[in-house]
Design a protein around this nucleic acid. Structure first.
Lengths: 249, 249
DNA sequence: TATAGTTGTCTATATCAATAGACAAATTTA
DNA sequence: TAAATTTGTCTATTGATATAGACAACTATA
């Protein structure tokens, strides 16, 4: 006996199919460490009995997770866990992407996907303390750990002050280093709003998720030590691969 | 024109039904303030066209939200928004339940549901720095704002040190005040782990949710100013009614 | 080698989810 | 009052979801 899946029941006529709910439960069990890497899942008939559903329904759930790269099924042997526990992503006053993931993933980096200049929307202007419509630079980035996307972020900077930050980001691959080129040696996370929702079409593509997944969303403002706003950002994290560790803000 | 719903598409064959996805989108739009209280939703045919689905599918989504108490439909007139924006629940070093919700809800309180003594599980023991199996008191509470549940928490305290905290909680209705009776004038949130998942059967009952809803889950340890653990807790928040505001120390 | 245990595939059936169209009922507006 | 707009109800059909049972294919082990 290796792992223990939650025995609580599942909901019918909920708008969420039974196989999706069971897949979520298996993901959760793996995420909290109920199954070690390469551990065998209970046989399909046992899972079916535990959740009170047909074996084929369990198979649908497993098929989705195999498709997702979480499980590996071997005929005659069993079904095995491929992926490790969720990454624990730190959120704090001095959160820096790669620093906090040390020891959890052997390889990690941030990719700049697109950059553009646009007029500040209402919320971006509010966050940065600018007039609405002021030109801002938008950087779209993706954070990856061991080749899997673990975050997708959009960051906005005042265009006049940070002209060329997109090039710096491309060259250095780091927001922190890029900001240093503009004389920002230190910055703090001023405020963070946190919510969760179902992944939409953009999330599915950006984070390589399967439909029905859940994303955590943070909206935050970074400021200099003297309180001057420099960056407004919205980040999305796949809840099945990441949990957030709130440290001293 | 009053509100603006996200134009992005919805996912078919995802394990999450179209009506559930549309209900989620409407909830989100209300939550971020796209619709004022008592504002009219676009007519069903308009919504159906926007999402590329049949009118009856939109009606299923609306029916679920009416059932949930979020919308009110009036034949011949339209469909109207009942509930306000999400509560912004503060999470910080000194988070106290009711203090942070001032101004967002006219009435708020914490109800003690059950209390019991049990041997500490592995994670509770770890969090409190006790040996596994040590007796701990478990308090189950529900936070309500304007009559609607906004949180459901389980808190564990060392039984020997905090004997009678359940009675104090019943009498005072406040964890903070109860702890003061044991000489704890101040305490800090040491660490918080944050995740999100689909609501299970217990969440549905505890938080008065509809199947398919999403809950935010925090697991945290409170300590005295000199670092001594006093409380281990797990809280669940309905993502459709609450967002978390991570504040500074 | 035989047997038990496991995943894979097939057929069949019932129920839920989604589409389609028509019209009724209530409200607002011209 | 008449017309336009909107929600409510009904029937019918299609596709996805879930159940049920049987058996094949593969693996490990007695």
């Amino acid at each position: 006996m290796v792992g223990q899946l939650a025995a609580d029941s599942i909901e019918r006529r909920s708008g969420v199919s039974l196989w999706r709910q069971i897949a979520d439960k298996i993901l959760h069990a793996i995420a909290i460490g109920d199954f070690a890497e390469n551990a065998a899942l209970p046989p399909e008939v046992a899972l079916a009995e535990r959740y009170g559903v047909n074996r084929h329904t369990v198979r649908s759930a497993i098929a989705a997770l195999v498709q997702e790269g979480v499980l590996r099924a071997e005929q005659g042997r069993g079904t095995f866990v491929l992926s490790r526990k969720r990454l624990s992503y730190p959120i704090g006053a001095r959160t820096r992407f790669s620093a906090g993931l040390q020891g959890q993933a052997s390889e990690r980096h941030t990719v700049l996907l697109t950059s553009s200049v646009e007029p500040a929307s209402q919320r971006v202007a509010e966050g940065l303390g600018l007039a609405r419509g002021t030109d801002v630079i938008r950087l779209e980035t993706r954070g990856e750990a061991d080749g899997r996307p673990v975050s997708r972020a959009a960051g906005w900077f005042e265009a006049r002050r940070f002209a060329g930050i997109d090039a710096a980001m491309t060259a250095t691959g780091s927001i922190t280093v890029s900001l240093a080129r503009f004389g920002i040696d230190d910055y703090l996370r001023q405020s963070t709003m946190l919510s969760a929702r179902h992944a939409d079409a953009a999330d599915l593509a950006d984070l390589d998720l399967q439909p029905g997944a859940i994303v955590l969303v943070t909206v935050s403002v970074n400021v200099t030590p003297d309180g001057q706003p420099i960056q407004f950002s919205e980040s999305r994290f796949p809840a099945e691969r990441v949990e957030l560790k709130l440290s001293a803000l």
